[in-house]
Amino acid sequence: MSRENAPIRAALLRLRQQAEAQATALDGDLRSLFEASRSSNADDEHDPEGSTIAFERAQLTAVMDAARRQIAELDVALQRLDAGTYGVCEGCGRPIPAERLAVRPSARTCVACADRR
């Protein structure tokens, strides 16, 4: 690993750690929700008070899936860093602008190629 890649690697690993912590917390919340719904005989489908348990479960699952996708994308970014292809567009082979990587560190394409997808 080159010294110039060390700050990039550190940033990617920090983002991955944050996403992993979020996924773990969400998994705990989802397990708690399942346990609470199992021990309750409430008719959440007809409850006039707020959202249903099914809705909350769907929300938690969607956010947890997004966190897991982010972890996978960051893993690919780390692999690309190791391979020397981080910051190079997979579509056209040109450099991905630093501004795009600052906003989306796991970007694999430049904006032009991303727009074509």
Rank of each mutant, 00 (worst) to 15 (best):
residue 57 R to G: 14
residue 41 N to C: 12
residue 102 A to S: 10
residue 24 T to S: 14
residue 66 A to R: 11
residue 41 N to R: 14
residue 55 F to T: 04
residue 50 G to S: 02
residue 12 L to A: 09
residue 52 T to G: 10
residue 108 R to F: 00
residue 28 G to D: 08
residue 92 C to I: 01
residue 104 R to L: 13
residue 112 A to L: 08
residue 10 A to R: 12
residue 3 R to A: 15
residue 42 A to G: 04
residue 67 A to Y: 08
residue 51 S to C: 07
residue 2 S to N: 06
residue 108 R to D: 00
residue 21 A to I: 04
residue 51 S to D: 15
residue 92 C to Q: 01
residue 54 A to I: 05
residue 48 P to Y: 07
residue 100 R to W: 02
residue 59 Q to E: 12
residue 27 D to P: 09
residue 79 Q to N: 08
residue 91 G to Y: 01
residue 115 D to F: 00
residue 14 R to A: 15
residue 4 E to S: 06
residue 23 A to M: 05
residue 53 I to C: 10
residue 3 R to V: 11
residue 58 A to V: 01
residue 56 E to A: 13
residue 92 C to E: 00
residue 101 L to W: 03
residue 47 D to M: 03
residue 115 D to P: 02
residue 22 Q to W: 01
residue 87 G to W: 00
residue 107 A to K: 01
residue 73 E to P: 03
residue 78 L to W: 07
residue 2 S to L: 08
residue 27 D to G: 15
residue 46 H to E: 14
residue 79 Q to V: 07
residue 98 A to N: 06
residue 60 L to A: 06
residue 111 V to N: 04
residue 71 I to T: 14
residue 93 G to I: 00
residue 5 N to S: 14
residue 23 A to C: 05
residue 2 S to K: 04
residue 64 M to K: 07
residue 24 T to A: 14
residue 79 Q to R: 08
residue 37 S to W: 11
residue 17 Q to F: 14
residue 54 A to K: 11
residue 84 G to N: 04
residue 101 L to R: 02
residue 94 R to M: 10
residue 78 L to P: 09
residue 78 L to N: 07
residue 75 D to I: 06
residue 67 A to F: 08
residue 104 R to W: 11
residue 69 R to L: 11
residue 37 S to T: 13
residue 42 A to C: 05
residue 25 A to I: 05
residue 61 T to M: 09
residue 3 R to L: 15
residue 41 N to T: 13
residue 102 A to E: 14
residue 78 L to T: 03
residue 70 Q to L: 12
residue 80 R to H: 04
residue 98 A to W: 03
residue 45 E to A: 15
residue 71 I to H: 02
residue 15 L to S: 12
residue 104 R to T: 04
residue 108 R to K: 08
residue 52 T to V: 02
residue 84 G to V: 00
residue 49 E to Y: 03
residue 115 D to C: 04
residue 39 S to Y: 02
residue 101 L to E: 00
residue 13 L to D: 02
residue 32 S to M: 13
residue 54 A to Q: 10
residue 86 Y to K: 06
residue 43 D to Q: 05
residue 86 Y to H: 11
residue 26 L to A: 12
residue 105 P to Q: 02
residue 19 A to N: 07
residue 98 A to H: 05
residue 83 A to G: 06
residue 23 A to R: 07
residue 107 A to E: 11
residue 48 P to T: 06
residue 72 A to K: 04
residue 26 L to C: 12
residue 39 S to D: 14
residue 104 R to N: 09
residue 28 G to S: 09
residue 105 P to F: 00
residue 58 A to S: 15
residue 101 L to Q: 00
residue 109 T to W: 12
residue 30 L to N: 08
residue 67 A to H: 04
residue 95 P to V: 09
residue 33 L to F: 10
residue 21 A to M: 07
residue 14 R to V: 12
residue 23 A to W: 06
residue 46 H to I: 14
residue 20 E to G: 09
residue 8 I to S: 05
residue 67 A to G: 02
residue 19 A to W: 02
residue 59 Q to D: 13
residue 62 A to T: 12
residue 73 E to K: 08
residue 33 L to V: 12
residue 60 L to M: 09
residue 42 A to E: 15
residue 69 R to G: 08
residue 72 A to Q: 07
residue 32 S to W: 09
residue 54 A to Y: 07
residue 46 H to K: 14
residue 18 Q to D: 13
residue 86 Y to S: 09
residue 32 S to F: 10
